[in-house]
Design a protein around this nucleic acid. Structure first.
Lengths: 198, 198
DNA sequence: TTCGTCATGTAAGAAGTTACATGATTTC
DNA sequence: GAAATCATGTAACTTCTTACATGACGAA
């Protein structure tokens, strides 16, 4: 999976952490929060990856950390360095394949839906459509935040949000097309395969 | 990840194998081929999962296998049973959440692209767009196969193919929008974040 | 006779997630 | 004073992928 990390010994997770520090996340905890609020729909990192990444990034001089306890609660805050800015840009611009992985059980079930009778297939179609519609609604709810970020100098988060919306909207629209097309096409029995269909 | 497999002791991989047998794949090898040609863009299974699944499915009476060596080369061919048809339908219709996972390094890089100067950001945008355009072209090349399958009783594979196309087309279109919008907006320097942007 | 394909597996390793563990601070 | 949040980690467990291993058949 490290197609795009290259020779340098930083994992993708570390670059994500670096990028989040650049965007103003100061502690591991804030990085996790920010990640959940922004890129969770197309990337995830767990605390298990965040804290070692912070240590490694600091050791490499890409961020600087200092203790800033709140009362008796320990806390370490980080900032990106010039070297960190450069490393982030190098990674963002690094050529090579850009892995894209989709794992969608809904599409799998739709793929096999010919095994069902029309009524049941319709139910699968509706379930997948409603899932995408819910996702669209969830993403639209974040739009104001993305617009606010754009007005403060970060325009690209809004683009990735719009892509998520367009993506799921396209799936929902196609589901609806199929639902209508096969609404009254009560063919009756599910297809039986006596010879390979694919 | 087994949110949707439920109490019964079959993994998602086993149901996929079952579905592929129903669609006419007779051996483990053919299942792998068919999987590569059809659902690989939204699901993957490796031979390591296929062969144990076949054993398990046969032990459960959902498929029947018989030896059918070609010359001295061993070979075991399978067929789905009525119980297998029922199990597949039960799984396809099983209610509950439908996991959807996207992991896209392209979106991650776009998300952080404000750290780049406009020219470099444009390059990232173009790289992501070209990737999606390539994917659209690859999927369109499979359309005749999907249409042929539809005419022989399997209409849903075409739907999942159309979804893949629509999905990537939407991403490519949005990239192009942004490329044009920021084509001459040479703001100059990359955004610097002195306070949290998100 | 050599290469590509058919066919079925095993073993080791990388990667990531879940659950656990701790404890302070703030809010109700 | 109870619950939610802040904050940082560890250990165990899955899960998946990669590489390896074997060997026959068909075509060039």
């Amino acid at each position: 999976m490290d197609d795009a990390t290259g020779k340098i010994g930083l994992s993708t997770a570390a670059y994500v952490v670096l990028g989040m520090v650049r965007l103003g996340a100061r502690t591991g905890y804030e990085i996790k929060q920010m990640t959940e609020q922004s890129i969770r729909y197309f990337w995830t990192i767990s605390p298990v990856q965040i804290y070692p990444s912070l240590t490694q990034l600091e050791a490499s001089g890409l961020i600087t950390g200092r203790e800033d306890p709140q009362g008796r609660r320990p806390r370490r805050v980080y900032e990106i360095t010039d070297a960190g800015q450069a490393a982030l840009r190098e990674w963002l611009g690094r050529p090579g394949p850009i892995p894209f992985e989709l794992r969608d059980l809904g599409l799998v079930k739709l793929f096999f839906a010919d095994a069902l009778d029309p009524g049941q297939a319709h139910d699968v179609l509706r379930a997948v459509r409603e899932r995408s519609e819910d996702r669209v609604a969830a993403l639209r709810a974040v739009e104001p935040t993305a617009r606010a970020a754009r007005d403060r100098g970060a325009a690209y988060p809004e683009l990735t949000l719009l892509m998520g919306i367009a993506f799921h909207q396209a799936m929902a629209d196609l589901c609806r097309d199929f639902e209508q097309r096969y609404a009254d096409a009560a063919d009756g029995e599910p297809g039986s395969a006596t010879q390979p269909l694919l």
